[in-house]
Every structure is written in structure tokens, then in C-alpha cells.
Design a protein around this nucleic acid. Structure first.
Length: 281
DNA sequence: AGTTGAATAT
DNA sequence: CATATTCAAC
């Protein structure tokens, strides 16, 4: 193929890593794949920057370096030889919980709306789980950025942090299913957050149930009324309380762990990137 | 030292 | 799947 052109939709290389077994099937799939490739007029010549200069400067994006045709060819060769070498070192797919890229779709439009709102309001951690498809990926699962040196196994996925967004989705799903169907696996599927494991959910569910029990069990006893300003017989608390999950992470979010009941009214300024990558212990 | 959220073991 | 225990962070 003409290496003067690049496609916006991903590198061809990724598909080069099957070797033996089922060649014919592979061939067919390759053909299909090839058929789907953009034609030459759809491609941007590598000699042209993807981002127009003025746009780049407007957004403070450092301009791409210019490439000569020679550069391009060289890079291309490089890529190819790299792929040839590392063929099978791919694909360990270090966990069961991420087969196809598209799983079930989200519960309903309402949910999606809510989530989107949230993501907009708190961009800090919205990067995982926002449409639950896009880059949730890179954020949640084993981080590939610094490349998995030891590749394959031995990789413990980083500790999951239940951000308010994640938790919210969790709560939504749980209430959407009855308490009967709200079991880890189902919840996990419904949440459709990729990288999220059943164990993650199970653990969280445990805490959540505990929390719920506490809420309801927590006698509206007199002691309560001493401090509470609401004299109502409050066993009407059927509605799953939106408990704000605290976060144990490198960056201290302004709110408290579990028990206290507060609505997060945090301002939406300050967007940092330090999500959860305390990656390694 | 005491809690907590999350992981892991049963 | 539920529950108990362990563990690291505050």
C-alpha cells in the first residue's frame, strides 16, 4: 500500500498478529477489512499536517514537525519491521473482562443523559466511563501508556477508584434492576464500563448494601431527632440514596467518604488530569 | 490508632 | 454470589 498516506482510523498493524491456525478465515477477514479501508482520495497525505497551522496555534498545540517523503518512508519501514518482530507478543488480553469492544449498550437514554451531564460538569474524572466507550478504556484498565514492559502477565490492574460518576452509574443501574437482579455480573454488564470487573462491582456492591442497611436500620431514634431538623417518620427512604463515594486517591477530592450524607455541590472549576494513576504500589 | 474503600480469600 | 478478611491510604 502506498505509504504516503495515512488513515485516520487506526493503524493497519494491529491486525497483523495472528500467525498460524485458521488462515483461510483470517484471509477472509483481512479481505473484509481491506475492503473497508478508505480509498486513496480520502486520505491525508503524510506530508501535510493533520491540524492546520492556525488552528494549532489557536489551541496551543505544538505543530507537527514537517516530514519529508524520506522521513515518511523510513517511518513506514520502521513500523513494518517492528510489527514483524513483535508479532505474537501482543494479545495477551490480560483479563477476561474485555473481549469485544462493544458490549451491551447502556441502560437507557436517561442514563446516558445523566452521565453525559456529569461528565461535562466534572471533567476531571469523566474520562473514564463518560460515554462508557471512548477512552474509558485507557483510563481504567492496565495502563498501556508507559507500555507494558513485561507485557503479558504479571500485570496487576491498578486499583479501581469509584469516582462519583462511576458510583452514580452504579447506583442507577442497581436501582434500575430490582434488588433481585442486582447482582455483580448483571450490574457490571449494565454499567458497560470497560475495564470494570465483576470483582470490582461485587466489592462495591457489598459496601453499598452495607450502606443501605445502615441507612434504613439506623433508627430514627430519638437521638437522631436531637440533631435532625426533620421530625418526619422517615421510613419513606425507599429511594436509593445517592451516597457520595469518597475517593482514596492521590488527589484529594473535596468530599468525604461514605457515611456522611452530603450532596456534591462542588464547583466545576479546576480540572486536573491526575485521575487515578497512582498506578503502582 | 482508627476508618475507610477496594482487593482478595473463603 | 455473598460474606469475611486483608491491605493500603488517609
Amino acid at each position: 500500500m502506498d505509504d504516503q498516506y495515512r488513515s485516520g482510523s487506526g493503524d493497519a498493524g494491529a491486525d497483523v498478529n495472528h500467525l498460524d491456525e485458521e488462515d483461510d478465515v483470517d484471509d477472509q477477514r483481512v479481505s473484509e477489512w481491506e475492503a473497508g479501508l478508505p480509498n486513496i482520495h480520502d486520505l491525508t497525505p503524510l506530508s501535510q499536517p493533520l491540524i492546520p497551522h492556525d488552528l494549532a496555534t489557536a489551541f496551543s498545540i505544538s505543530p507537527e514537525p514537517y516530514r519529508t517523503l524520506l522521513d515518511v518512508t523510513r517511518a513506514s519501514d520502521n513500523t513494518i519491521s517492528t510489527l514483524r518482530c513483535s508479532n505474537n507478543s501482543f494479545a495477551p488480553s490480560n483479563n477476561k473482562a474485555r473481549p469485544p469492544h462493544a458490549q451491551l449498550l447502556a441502560i437507557d437514554s436517561t442514563t446516558m443523559m445523566l452521565i453525559d451531564d456529569d461528565a461535562a460538569a466534572d471533567p476531571r474524572k469523566s474520562r473514564r466511563l463518560d460515554s462508557a466507550a471512548e477512552e474509558a478504556d485507557s483510563a481504567l484498565r492496565t495502563d498501556n501508556s508507559a507500555d507494558d514492559q513485561t507485557s503479558a502477565r504479571a500485570l496487576k490492574r491498578p486499583r479501581l477508584v469509584w469516582t462519583p460518576q462511576l458510583h452514580k452509574r452504579f447506583v442507577e443501574v442497581v436501582s434500575h434492576l430490582g434488588l433481585n437482579n442486582a447482582v455483580p455480573k448483571t450490574i457490571m454488564q449494565m454499567m458497560n464500563v470497560d475495564g470494570l470487573t465483576r470483582e470490582n462491582v461485587a466489592s462495591h456492591l457489598q459496601k453499598y448494601r452495607l450502606y443501605l442497611k445502615r441507612q434504613s436500620g439506623e433508627g430514627p431514634a430519638l437521638s437522631d431527632q436531637l440533631f435532625s431538623s426533620d421530625p418526619y417518620p422517615h421510613h419513606l427512604r425507599q429511594q436509593p440514596p445517592v451516597m457520595p463515594m469518597g475517593i482514596h486517591s492521590a488527589n484529594p477530592p473535596p468530599y468525604h467518604p461514605f457515611d456522611s450524607h452530603q450532596h456534591f455541590s462542588m464547583m466545576q472549576h479546576q480540572q486536573q488530569q491526575r485521575d487515578w494513576p497512582s498506578a503502582n504500589n
